[in-house]
């Protein structure tokens, strides 16, 4: 799972969940890495455990921090910067720089397909609208090109990493 954190000045942090280890019913270990220009700038393992109905997190299993109760926060704060959170996809206006293959970054349902095979598209153009986490997410073209193949249709429920569309 990839998470994009983008602040008001369009500065972005890309955090990847690279590993998940379920130790027990109460303890899960996650490995996160932060990418900058495709280079890992920071990597750390975080343990989460549930105690008395609350989540506690730690990076050393010694000091546990109680996590504020929030289901799916839309914002993260870092001192004087508020980041918008985009889980699994990048918001409009910011290209993902992918090659012609459009994969789902998160499980979701196809709501609308805005192009047909053979259409010419430009970078940033919305191709597919995917409903995930009760939100409609616009999936955009990462490059200028022509739609070569469409592998999905409206109403399809997709898993993560499914090929939806190919550009040329």
């Amino acid at each position: 799972m990839r998470t994009y954190l983008i602040d008001a000045e369009k500065n972005e942090l890309i955090i990847d969940l690279t590993k998940t280890l379920v130790h027990s019913k109460e303890l899960i270990e996650f490995e996160f890495s932060t990418l900058q220009d495709n280079e890992i700038v920071h990597r750390e393992n975080i343990f989460v455990r549930k105690l008395a109905g609350r989540y506690f997190a730690s990076n050393d299993q010694k000091n546990w921090v109680k996590l504020a109760p929030q289901n799916l926060p839309k914002k993260f704060l870092n001192v004087d910067r508020v980041f918008d959170i985009y889980r699994g996809f990048k918001p409009s206006g910011l290209s993902d720089g992918n090659d012609g293959e459009l994969l789902t970054q998160m499980p979701g349902k196809v709501v609308k397909i805005l192009v047909a095979t053979g259409d010419e598209v430009v970078e940033g153009q919305t191709l597919v609208i995917l409903e995930a986490m009760k939100m409609e997410n616009e999936i955009k073209a990462g490059l200028d090109g022509v739609v070569k193949n469409i592998h999905v249709s409206v109403g399809d429920a997709l898993d993560q990493g499914v090929l939806m569309l190919e550009l040329e």
């Binding site: 969940l17 998940t20 899960i28 996160f32 975080i46 989540y55 799916l72 993260f76 889980r87």
Partner: peptide
């Protein structure tokens, strides 16, 4: 970074039904 990771870990843990 650690604070971001912890918040994300909380979201993931909840999603996994911990």
């Amino acid at each position: 970074y650690t604070s971001f990771y912890m918040k994300l870990a909380g979201i993931e843990a909840r999603r996994m039904g911990l």
